[in-house]
Design a protein around this nucleic acid. Structure first.
Length: 153
DNA sequence: GCCAACGTTGGC
DNA sequence: GCCAACGTTGGC
């Protein structure tokens, strides 16, 4: 049974086009430094799960769809002092942060904006819309996933 | 265990 | 740039 997620990224940092242009359209989803988001990736994501790729900050909205192709493994960027997401508390012997690999599936012809999500019946319960929500990795229902794909064309 | 201070996220 | 909301840290 495939399952469904929404993952946020600032397009200035990593956009859906960056994923599309990565080798094989595959990239690690690194840099997550929030325990709840980490737990979703580490404990619950399975290869084959579908992902709504959400662009935050600049024209916030869902830009397209990706798929989980590798289940969780340690996020080595946490071990690199030169990396923005360096965390000295994480070590190769005892990794604190984990990531998955995702593969580009497709980009929506028309991004589904946050405003549109807010105004579409059937999407009002999305975690994304919860006031103050900052989760960067969150589950969505199959119904929510399909409504957004239909809006995206 | 409490909670104030701080840094970050992210919409607008 | 502003600021509300949140998560983490660290003193006590």
């Amino acid at each position: 049974m495939p399952r469904y997620w929404l993952m946020k990224s600032e397009p200035g940092c990593f956009s859906i086009d960056d994923l599309k242009n990565a080798p094989g359209g595959i990239s690690p989803w690194d840099g997550v430094r929030n325990y709840q988001a980490r737990n979703f990736m580490r404990d619950d994501m399975r290869a084959g799960d579908k992902v709504l790729f959400y662009h935050s900050v600049t024209n916030p909205g869902v830009a397209g769809v990706a798929e989980v192709v590798r289940e969780s493994y340690p996020d080595h960027t946490a071990w690199d002092p030169e990396n923005n997401h360096f965390d000295p508390a994480s070590t190769p012997e005892s990794p604190r942060w984990f990531m998955v690999d995702v593969r580009f599936a497709h980009a929506f012809a028309r991004p589904v904006t946050l405003r549109e999500i807010r105004n579409t019946p059937g999407l009002e319960d999305m975690e994304l819309l919860r006031k103050g929500s900052r989760l960067s990795v969150m589950p969505v229902t199959q119904e929510q996933f399909e409504i957004i794909c239909a809006l995206g064309g």
